[in-house]
Design a protein around this nucleic acid. Structure first.
Lengths: 218, 218
DNA sequence: GTCTATACGGCGATAGAC
DNA sequence: GTCTATCGCCGTATAGAC
């Protein structure tokens, strides 16, 4: 029964990742202690340090785990919309859609792990301490491919404007997946901050219109 | 010299606020200790607790201090653009401008205090733990006035879309003022994340185009 | 208002048994 | 891989002198 033994090993490690992901998402890096993680995962305090070296090692492992999956899915979506487009390349809307749609894949609605992950990314993205370093490391290699496609779709764009537009997209996107519940209260319940399908359907035209306004020839 | 004595008293309290504001902006609530604040402000450890009751009391005082100023300036900008408009009310662009422009007032470029404050707000806005509670408390009473003006400027808008549009605006805005440096690296130096004037000039048309796309009659 | 001193628990990390 | 035990540090808050 070596297989079972190995499965159990993997399970503990993943349980630590899952619990820590949820805790970091809610309280941030400094708001979580290794003791909270160990308690939540029902493992010994020393185990997380053993597997990940340090608290920071655990944090990085959490960021990396799903970044790899998301980046791969986004890359496939970009390649697909390129393949479907003519020689002029895909439209701005198709590129934006290829960037956003993969966030709802991977069983987002059912798997709370992805919800926690995006809440965590929202905090990282907006942190002066980590945003520049970690977002660049985990996401920007792929983002550069999307920027290339956008440059081709918007040949008259001033480069600075193109990057600012992406930045606005990034801010709108991460806040949307941060699920703070603020919009629920502001709208007196008319909008649910969990309704990512409703948000997605509106974000694509909103962002596309902004890109076209700023980056097309007037 | 009672005056001098009182000035000195005020100075200590404000020094605590200024130093804590900068630290919270960089490291978040849980990443800052009262010892760090006391050391930075060159006051005794007990003094911050004396003035603000607790660490959390200090945090709230920091948020409130500039929220009052910003809300007042935004209200004046909204009233001004209403007064300048015809009976149909101000345009979407004028309303968005009235919301964004006040962030660059108050000597933003010179006063690093405002820069720290907006970095802090970016983190609060994106925190599942605090975003819903604190942004609602400190900013949404005024935001509701802006939403009313936008409803009048966009009479055909579906209410849900209007709120999602504001949400996208909020995300783009707070990330822009978070100064993470990510955009600098992504653009290979073409864009400076400190260039709030450049960001502002692009954000107004970007956001306006998004609102019009989603909230106008087709 | 300010500072000294301190209570008292939680923190991350690790050495070493099994 | 897992657990026990522990080190030494840092956390917030407060009591009491001045």
């Amino acid at each position: 029964m070596v297989k079972a033994k190995e499965n159990k090993k993997v399970k503990r490690k993943d349980r630590i990742l899952d619990v820590a992901e949820a805790l970091f998402a809610k309280h941030g890096f400094d708001g979580v202690s290794m003791r909270m993680v160990a308690e939540g995962a029902e493992v010994d305090l020393a185990l997380a340090s053993y597997h990940f070296g340090s608290k920071r090692g655990l944090f990085d492992a959490i960021l990396l785990r799903r970044a790899e999956v998301l980046n791969q899915t986004r890359l496939e979506a970009l390649e697909k919309c390129k393949a479907e487009a003519g020689p002029a390349g895909p439209t701005v809307e198709a590129i934006i859609d290829a960037y956003l749609k993969p966030m709802l894949a991977h069983g987002y609605e059912e798997d709370e792990g992805w919800r926690h992950y995006f809440e965590l990314v929202a905090q990282v993205n907006n942190s002066p301490e980590w945003g520049g370093q970690l977002m660049t490391k985990y996401f920007d290699p792929l983002v550069r491919k999307f920027m290339e496609a956008l440059k081709k779709a918007l040949p008259d764009a001033e480069p600075e404007s193109l990057y600012w537009c992406y930045h606005f997209l990034s801010g709108a996107l991460t806040l949307t997946f941060a699920h703070t519940g603020r919009i629920d209260q502001l709208s007196d319940g008319a909008v649910k901050s969990e309704d990512m399908v409703g948000a997605y359907k509106r974000m694509v035209p909103f962002i596309t219109a902004g890109f076209l306004e700023l980056c097309s020839k007037k």
